[in-house]
């Protein structure tokens, strides 16, 4: 086993060179280069974390704006609805007023027409009575030769007319 057989001869050389080369490894590579490599990794991790945070922030802002827009939209909708209701109510009231006005006008016209018809009927009736009374006087005078006064003829006509 050379490890033991050559121990006395080479132990110092082995120890010396491993100290030298492991020393180089530790100070040049371990202390010199590894922290830079790890710094790069750290920098990248930090950048990724920052980017993610920025993205999250942007997302939050977008959500907030959407919420605000939604609130505004709802307000607008409610306002529009109120306006429509108001206009509807106004239109209904106007229509009602107009209808009422024309109704009263029509009623008045109807009443007047009815009164006119009544008056015409009455005057026509009076005329008919007059004519009938005169005709009755005439008929009585011709047939019976009697003379009937106007009042009697008239009451007789009236009686006959109402009976008819």
């Amino acid at each position: 086993m050379p490890q033991i057989a050559q121990l006395a001869e080479f132990y110092s050389s082995q120890i010396f060179w491993v100290l030298v080369f492991f020393g180089i490894t530790f100070f040049l590579i371990g202390r010199g280069m590894v922290p830079k490599v790890m710094g790069t990794v750290e920098l990248r991790d930090k950048q990724i974390a920052d980017d993610l945070a920025a993205a999250q922030g942007a997302r939050d802002a977008a959500d907030e704006q959407e919420e605000a827009w939604r609130v505004r939209e709802n307000e607008n909708r409610a306002a529009a609805q109120a306006k429509i209701a108001e206009a509807k109510a106004e239109a209904a009231a106007k229509t009602e007023a107009k209808l009422a006005k024309s109704q009263t006008r029509l009623d008045a016209k109807l009443e007047q027409a009815e009164a006119e018809i009544e008056a015409a009927r009455e005057s026509a009736m009076a005329e008919i009575e007059d004519v009938a009374a005169e005709a009755t006087q005439d008929i009585v005078a011709r047939l019976a030769g009697g003379k009937v006064d106007k009042r009697t003829a008239r009451s007789a006509v009236k009686k006959a007319l109402t009976d008819a």
Partner: peptide, 17 residues
């Protein structure tokens, strides 16, 4: 006073480094 011969062992340490 100590032997520090550059051996094949040391050579491979150098290659490793």
């Amino acid at each position: 006073g100590f032997n520090i011969a550059f051996t094949n062992s040391a050579l491979w340490m150098a290659i490793t480094v």
